[in-house]
Nucleic acid binder design. Structure first.
Lengths: 239, 239
DNA sequence: GCTCGAAATTTATCATACAAACGCGCGGGC
DNA sequence: GCCCGCGCGTTTGTATGATAAATTTCGAGC
């Protein structure tokens, strides 16, 4: 996905205020300073500030009313699935709890996506998945493999033909990508996960939704177990 | 969820332009008129127009660059899960195809949510679900039942403790609500679906994730079958 | 023909002014 | 003494005009 352009001035304001809210520096119910004061304190014009406030308002983070001011809304109003909101949370809140929620979403989507792809894929879409798989087969270094793996999952998502699922997965995946570097998979891994990918591919080719779902579940389970094992072995960052 | 306030001036511009883009009146790649001209054609100041453009930009619908202008982005950049984008699609594109995609998402989320709720619910959260169920039991008119039903699903979602799931469901549900009036369930229905709700509740109480998932799947399947049956009987709006 | 630079156009940002909405307090009526 | 309504002040909403920055385009020079 795309995050708000931080280079532009109001983009910077969006990021700054958005982070402060998501992190909890500004808490729900809190009243922001007057626009004029806030603009001054961030060294931008009121115009630029207001453009930023409008965007944050669209993300459900704040609410402005004449005479009363701008206040932070309750968390249940936030667009939790917004790419920015998600990335701000990821950038600051390294609680395993939140990561677990992201992983849970991934575990829900991907098997369902595999099943949907198996049910509805066109010939062209299947070809794309097959091509991605072949690129995984011939991948030599871990970078090429990571790229091909990404392509496989993307092709699979496209084959579902459901743009809502595609969008959801893309958001979740990019958020997860901020924790687990994609190229973290070392050379030993693909000989490990390649058969899983093959099973998913075969199920999609044969249009067997439930088989595809199960295969994907197995793949995820293995991947997670692998990750945990590695995490335990390597430097433990968890307190 | 909350949609952008249409009463305010820039809110109106957001809705107007957003709809035009989502509907396809303005197609990806199209260049919008200059800000000054566009502002004039919509009878607002350039300030208000720009605030609207910023919001649409945050939703991924458009992209502005100096000297080049503002152009509609490709659909795969759109925040498909944005409440506004979804509602605009619903308000204009009554294709059964899109509804099917929404239903598919719901079918994916709810069983998973039921399972998660069964796995992690606290005592307080269980109490909320039970309370909602009891209100369904005593509901006499269809309006009260619809309200209680909504409460049940909400309590269940809350019990998952995953705000991402809550947000996703809320967005999908409100979009679906634009097609199927919630109170469409007539008196005959709840005696029908109440046992399903009870099974879900029981599974959550006993912390049996897979049982809860299956029960929810059954409930959805019945609900859909019921809907199709009714749709066929009543006036057919489909061409 | 190619390269580099100046110009023109459009968005980005700013400063200022006015309008509208709304809470708050004051004052009058009962 | 208490309630109701009206005016005032504050803050956001909108408008206007000007300037800066970016980037495409076109032309001049080699």
């Amino acid at each position: 996905m795309k995050a708000t352009d931080s280079r532009s001035l109001h983009g910077h304001v969006i990021r700054e205020l958005g982070k402060r809210i998501v992190v909890g520096d500004l808490r729900p119910g809190d009243l922001l300073p007057r626009e004029e004061d806030l603009a001054e304190s961030m060294a931008v014009s009121r115009t630029a500030l207001r453009e930023a406030l409008k965007v944050l308002s669209a993300k459900g983070l704040i609410e402005s009313r004449p005479r009363v001011g701008t206040r932070v809304r309750a968390t249940h109003f936030w667009n939790q699935l917004d790419a920015d909101v998600l990335s701000w949370r990821c950038a600051s809140m390294p609680t395993d709890d939140f990561i677990a929620k992201l992983v849970e979403m991934r575990e829900i989507i991907e098997p369902a996506a595999a099943a949907a792809a198996a049910r509805r894929r066109t010939a062209a879409q299947l070809a794309k998945v097959e091509q991605a798989y072949r690129q995984m087969e011939v991948a030599r270094d871990s970078e090429a493999w990571a790229m091909a793996d990404l392509g496989f999952h993307d092709a699979l998502l496209q084959a579902t033909g459901n743009e809502l699922m595609i969008s959801l997965f893309s958001v979740i995946e990019s958020a997860l990508g901020m924790f687990f570097v994609l190229s973290a998979q070392t050379a030993g891994d693909f000989s490990y996960s390649l058969p899983h990918h093959l099973k998913v591919l075969e199920a999609i080719r044969r249009k067997q939704p439930e088989v595809a779902r199960k295969a994907m579940q197995n793949m995820i389970a293995d991947s997670l177990a692998n990750l945990h094992r590695k995490r335990r072995k390597s430097t433990r960052k968890t307190p």
